[in-house]
Amino acid sequence: MFIAEKVQFVDTTLRDGEQTAGIAFSAAEKMAIAKQLDQSGVPYIEAGVPAMGGSEFHALRNILHAGLNAKVIAWNRAVREDIFKSIYCGFSNIHISVPISQNHIAVKFQQDPAWVIAKLEECIDLAANYGCTVSVGAEDASRADLEFFLQVADVAAQMGAVRIRYADTVGCLTPFQTYNTMRCLQEHCPLPVEFHAHNDFGLATANTLAAVRAGIDLVSVTVNGIGERAGNASLEEVALALNEVYGCSAGIDLSVIGPLCQLVERSSGQKNFVYKPVSGERMSI
């Protein structure tokens, strides 16, 4: 086992979580959730997409001025206009996401891997010129060539990015596959890796733990596991599982998890399944 002593959560409740079909947080709700995440000890908050403009842009700007301890991150496509919007909004922590599986690149953009690298270089360069700290997201990494992931990581590292997100975009990894891949990345990846799980088969928490077991100390989570389709790795499950099963800290104040889950339930309008681990009514710890 290569378990890190301390794991750091990159919370994406306000971005990937809000992408759940039908969820729309108001600006006030986004602020309340961001503040409570901050109070619970979450070190990274991926707060949203400034490129959406309008009320989202203003909501994010307010969060940036709320004096949070956490690093607040803007999510962007590898599109210059997205990056400009984020910088104009006031962000200095920029996440740039690129699809890295052959299929995603070919079908969504009718392009090739070289084009992705070029777009990434262009956008990291732009963000870096404005003094931003850049993290890169590799979408659909679990169905992409590991070699290409490492190539993208190399480019990102050379251009000064601080970490790279490995996204299991359709939640199709098993814990053993996650462990083996993350072990390999620990050996060969020039950047720290953040593991981003999805819960299509109910394996998001387990896959996240498998990544930690392989030595990864940055993981994406959302409160109540909200997110696209069947959701993301649930913050409260991962925090408790790390603590109880691995004796590993995520730096989260476990006593405030209950109120945090309830806040997101109310704001999202989506009540947890009563049998949902940790935050379901019948399973509450």
Binding site: Q19, T20, A21, G22, R77, H104, V107, K108, N199, D200, F201, G202, I226, E228, R229, A230, G231, Q270, K271, N272, F273, V274, Y275
Partner: peptide, 28 residues
Amino acid sequence: VEEPLTKTIIGLDIFAHESGIHVAGVLK
């Protein structure tokens, strides 16, 4: 018990796509 719309495997909304990037992809 009330089953959430996003319940794994069987939730009524696990194939409901909203975000622009996802919809554009799924349509292709």
